[in-house]
Amino acid sequence: MRVLNILAGAIAVATLGGCSTSQSALVPRGEQAERINTLFWVMTSGGAVILVLVCVLAAIAIFGSASLRRRLSGEALVKGLGIALPVLVLTLLLTYGFLVLRAGAVPEGTQTNMRIAVSGELWWWRVTYTDASGTRVETANEIHLPVGRPVTLELTTADVIHSLWAPNLAGKLDMIPGRTNELTVTATEAGVTRGQCAEYCGGAHAFMSFHVVAQPPEEFEAWLAQEASPADPVEDPQLLRGQELFLNTGCGGCHAVRGTAATGSIGPDLTHVGSRRSLAAGTLPNTAEAIAAFIVNNQHIKPENKMPEYALFSDEELGDLSAYLESLR
């Protein structure tokens, strides 16, 4: 069993090493995830010992010598290993579990935590920051965190039940209609990890992911300031054509690009879409080609998503439009 533990660890490391972003509870990057990871290894080791014990005893019961078997054959075995031992182990484990649970309590002075509102929507994440001046800054599918500072995520849903799960950071917490659940997380080191909706929410549940970007506090502040600013005015002729297409073909009915006439709030805010790490809640890489593909073919790429397919553009128009969106950084 110990071998299996090591194997699991090796696989976890391979997971991290083999690709750019990790989405794993075995690679903790947050305080809660670290506590749970320790808990996991303690329980796994203990469980492995118990499993081996049962297997060895069963083997002795079947293949052992007559005298060995006689020793196992009484109610004493049941009372000792079937009652006394479990009671002892379970009591210890339960207490340990409670202590880990208590460690999740929000410490005193919680009001000073930074708060980020995350709303689960079919099938993406609306993320709203409130900056120092009290302005609400909306973005999507990416949660930026200052390393080392506790941040409280206010979890709500716009429709069905979702569950926010960034396994490197912390355990999951559901988003339930009519309720606001609060999850306090503290990133322990800078880096990008991935998360995903964990509660089946129908249709494109598999395509409801997000990135967690943990940054040094100064970097985070800078990012937030940039995110709060409206989109830069466009000058390049291609981008201007793209912007015009965006505004004239109704994209603004659902999407907002602050600083332009597009103020829709049904779909994700696109003011700085070009700076995000993915498209369509982790479905596609963020490139101009991917944007173009999604505009034309999104029901194939992410079936049942709420955006209609726009097949009316010529290739050239599509190029302009996607270049414009890609330029929104």
Partner: peptide
């Protein structure tokens, strides 16, 4: 009784109303 002892441990160790998240 064991199960009730466990309830009591919970009541002694944990704050009554916090979500603890």
């Amino acid at each position: 009784v064991l199960a009730m002892v466990y309830f009591s441990i919970a009541a002694l160790l944990l704050p009554a109303c916090g979500q603890l998240r």
